[in-house]
Amino acid sequence: MTDAITIENLTKSFHGRPVLQDLNLSVPRGSIFGFIGPNGAGKTTTIRLLLGLLKPDAGKITILGQDLRTHSIALRRRIGYVSEQASFYPWMQVDELVKFNAGFFPTWEREKTAHLLKIFHLDPTARVKELSRGMLTQLSLIMALSHHPELLILDEPTAGLDPVWRRRFLQLLSEETAGGETTVFLSSQILTDIERIADRLAIIVNGQIRVVRTLDKLKHHEKIIRVVFQQAAPETLLNTPGIRSIERQGHGYLLTVEDHFDEIYEALSRTPHFALEIIEQDLEEIFLNYAASEEDPHNA
């Protein structure tokens, strides 16, 4: 089966300033894919390119097996989208907006919309301008789910929501995509959200993908080893593939290992040392490590 999203050598600049550089990414079908990065890393630009709202300078995007350039409109019928700041027509009532939106999607299921509106206690006769930000995000998700999308793209949907709304939002998202028929591409800076629902993630820094892993592999295989050698650090050992970054702290070294952990640890333990310990990391620390290594070249 083809991937839900394939991005090949995607490049985009604004006024000569590169925002995405040769970006490559594959999102498997049925996955809940977290897309994280610091502010200005290129997350929203990538999403706007995926939706055809922006045109790439170079590169190719394939969604659900179809070229986005030539099948943009047909693909949008198969995609649900929740933007960072859900903005609709303030003068409309909720049911008017839902009806208007349904008119664009032949697969729209009215019963599902009514059911979801009920779950979130959203009054169909309320004006859109009367809804809080949390309610607007919920409404946006309901509209994105009601036509049974094969791909759901969410751009920082929980940013600015209080913990109660966030929890409700993620719960609904998990329930609705539990069958694995919908692929979810979720951009967020709230790493606990990603940890809660994603099974795979990519970290983007300065317009380039730094890592793509399953969440499990990233959390359990990406570790930091602190070692203090008895003699000069063996260069060949420090250059072993799998060590992503090396930070010197006095006589000791902090090695960030992203692969071949067992082999590296064993080689280090055979080298004369005063101290050797493994420092476990959570997702936030792993993310900060990637973001910091890009900002500080001496740390790489």
Partner: peptide, 14 residues
């Protein structure tokens, strides 16, 4: 200006 452009442009319409 009212921020609905993204919503409209992401509908399946040219």
């Amino acid at each position: 200006s009212r921020g609905s452009m993204d919503y409209l442009l992401s509908r399946p319409l040219s």
